[in-house]
Design a protein around this nucleic acid. Structure first.
Lengths: 110, 110
DNA sequence: CCCTTTACATCGACAGTCTATGCATAGATA
DNA sequence: TATCTATGCATAGACTGTCGATGTAAAGGG
């Protein structure tokens, strides 16, 4: 898997995972890994800066919690975050379809 | 359209356009624009560095031609370029499907 | 005669990802 | 007990790649 492709989709995927309820960094990496069937591995060096970025942009809010003797920073999607997520998903849909057309539509079938 | 998503797909799309026969920079931008129905605009600041990159990597070879009083640098796909293109398309297919799964498969239908 | 289109190219700014590193704790295992 | 793996957060520096701006140049139309 070409990891360069992941650029620009990290924020969207984080927000998507957070839609199901408050979550934290490590859990996000696991969720993405599982949902993508092992294909997409969010690296820590990308994940944490992204989380901080999203919080600065008010798309996520954070809160420290102590669970099972482990401190976790839980992130919750804000209303603005939800809106942004919808827009990003729409963008992704249009973008991926556009690339598909450039590649000839049936590129996966030949 | 979020232009950040284009990162990592530029080289692939250039190679794809070149599959149909020797082409040149400006023609590539037009081809991508038309095939994507106006969605994807390869900027010159990305295009020319990419063409040079691909030539350095021996995936393309170039040749100057004079057509209708215009000098154009035609690029031709090498056998290695063809192989790389196939791999990149496969990568893209797997990647886009993986993102789709993370987003919930039916994200375009809701 | 100018404006748009065609055509190539580069530079510096900028954004975002990655590797490596650091810290810390829980639980399993040797 | 000591060590290893998994969990959990974080940052710094390297690196890559895209973009806007800028430059050059010529064709063709108004």
């Amino acid at each position: 898997m070409d990891q360069k492709l992941i650029s620009g989709t990290v924020d969207m995927m984080i927000l998507e995972v957070a839609v199901d309820g408050p979550t934290y960094g490590y859990a996000v990496t696991q969720a993405v890994l599982q949902r993508s069937e092992g294909k997409l591995e969010l690296k820590e060096g990308s994940l944490y800066p992204a989380l901080h970025r999203l919080e600065r942009s008010k798309l996520l809010t954070s809160e420290w919690r102590e669970v099972d003797g482990r401190r976790r920073k839980y992130y919750r999607l804000t209303p603005a975050g939800k809106k942004t997520l919808q827009a990003r998903k729409q963008d992704w849909l249009e973008f991926s379809q556009a690339v598909g057309r450039v590649l000839g539509e049936n590129y996966g079938l030949t």
